[in-house]
């Protein structure tokens, strides 16, 4: 079902864990849907210097979290904000159709962590980050 690259990120997830003195923390998803992603970021001079994640979810949720952290680590915030779920899926070499919503979670978790960073700086994140919806698929219920 999953490509080798997806399985590689699933079995050897990069950047798993927490950052105790994180500059921003974002969490997205809920237990009912079976997916929760939590992202921690360290920011220095507007650059994401470190990122860690914790994910409760299926194989693709863990793999997308993992690759998304690799894609934003060392990037300026503006670049990280441009990360789309499509880019995450492409970087993984594709996902089965019914798993695409997991990649949306990764994109939203990053935005949520960045929004938290701005709030901690006393900056309203909405004009910069935009509205972060919850996983659309979760609202089917």
């Amino acid at each position: 079902m999953y490509s080798e690259l997806v399985m590689d990120h699933f079995t050897n997830p990069r950047n798993v864990g927490e950052i105790a003195d994180a500059d921003g923390v974002g969490e997205i998803g809920n237990a009912k849907c079976g997916d929760i992603m939590k992202m921690y970021i360290k920011v220095s001079d507007n650059v994401i210097t470190d990122v860690k994640f914790k994910t409760f979810g299926c194989g693709s949720a863990i793999a997308t979290s993992s690759i998304a952290t690799e894609m934003i680590k060392g990037q300026p915030i503006e670049e990280a904000l441009k990360l789309s779920n499509k880019a995450v899926v492409e970087a993984l070499g594709g996902l089965p159709a019914h798993k695409i919503h997991c990649s949306v979670l990764a994109e939203q978790a990053i935005k949520s962590a960045i929004a938290d960073y701005y709030r901690r700086q006393g900056v309203d994140p909405t004009p910069i980050v935009g509205e972060i919806g919850d996983c659309e698929a979760c609202h089917v219920h």
Binding site: Y2, F10, G57, C58, G59, I62, K99
Partner: peptide
Amino acid sequence: IEGESLLLWLDQKGICASSGSAC
């Protein structure tokens, strides 16, 4: 934990099982 992740790991260890998780 979520069932599909569990199944994928069990498969890595050579065990075929199933789960009632949404995924």
